[in-house]
């Protein structure tokens, strides 16, 4: 693959043609919010809708995780349109995320907090109501880690770690729409699943949905 030259926020960058912009930007310490992006994936999920950037010549923002870099590309990571979409997507995610950072094991290391800090977004709901819905109880059946679905943002990092890295297949996505969730096959407790407790999924979780049980 040949190298291409292009710019992000005015900074000249050289990278391999076809690489997805998100990863190139991150490598150059240019922050773009993202949750679901997985570099190795041939076909990105493009589900979290946070990594919008503006590309010169395109009338609406595009997701950086799906944008192959090419010669002469002119990218801006911030614009009124981008900021508006990111703000809404972020608030939508917060509206379905248990917001008690003080009690969360991921406090100060959470990607949501990082995005809020970088983009000047509030970690509370300003326009929307918190979605009231029944959540299954925390699955703390294993001695090593626990899974709290009320904090899950459905990014799929844990599923990738479990299926593609650890090659275990204990968890996956199930159900559709608002009920979409990460679960074990048929929803049994993690302890009763093929989980080998390698902890890769916990390390992959960008929020506090999967966390190690330190004092159990």
């Amino acid at each position: 693959m040949s190298d291409v030259k292009f710019s992000i926020d005015g900074q000249e960058i050289t990278a391999t043609a076809g690489e997805k912009l998100l990863w190139v930007a991150l490598e150059h310490d240019i922050f773009i919010p993202h949750l679901c992006g997985i570099r190795e994936e041939q076909r990105p999920t493009a589900g979290c809708r946070l990594c919008f950037v503006e590309v010169e010549g395109q009338d609406r923002p595009v997701t950086a995780c799906t944008l192959p870099v090419r010669e002469g590309l002119v990218v801006k990571t911030r614009s009124p349109a981008v900021d508006r979409l990111v703000r809404t997507a972020f608030e939508l995610l917060l509206s379905d995320h248990r917001l008690q950072c003080g009690k969360c094991p991921k406090n100060r290391a959470c990607t949501l907090q990082q995005i809020a800090r970088e983009r000047g977004l509030k970690l509370k709901l300003t326009r929307l109501q918190h979605l009231q819905r029944d959540m299954p109880p925390v699955d703390d059946s294993t001695a090593v880690f626990a899974f709290d679905r009320s904090r899950c943002v459905l990014c799929g990092q844990c599923v990738h770690a479990d299926q593609q890295v650890a090659k275990v297949g204990a968890i996956g996505f199930s159900c559709r729409g608002l009920n979409r969730t990460v679960s074990t096959f048929t929803g049994v407790d993690l302890e009763d699943s093929p989980c080998i407790k390698c902890g890769l999924c916990v390390k992959a979780c960008p929020v506090g949905a999967l966390y190690f049980l330190e004092n159990k």
């Binding site: 589900g47 809708r49 939508l92 509206s95 979605l131 559709r176 729409g177 608002l178 009920n179 979409r180």
Partner: peptide
Amino acid sequence: QESCGKCTFCRLGTKH
């Protein structure tokens, strides 16, 4: 009801 739930805007935006 027919939203597949894959992306944030459709899954949560339509609900709100």
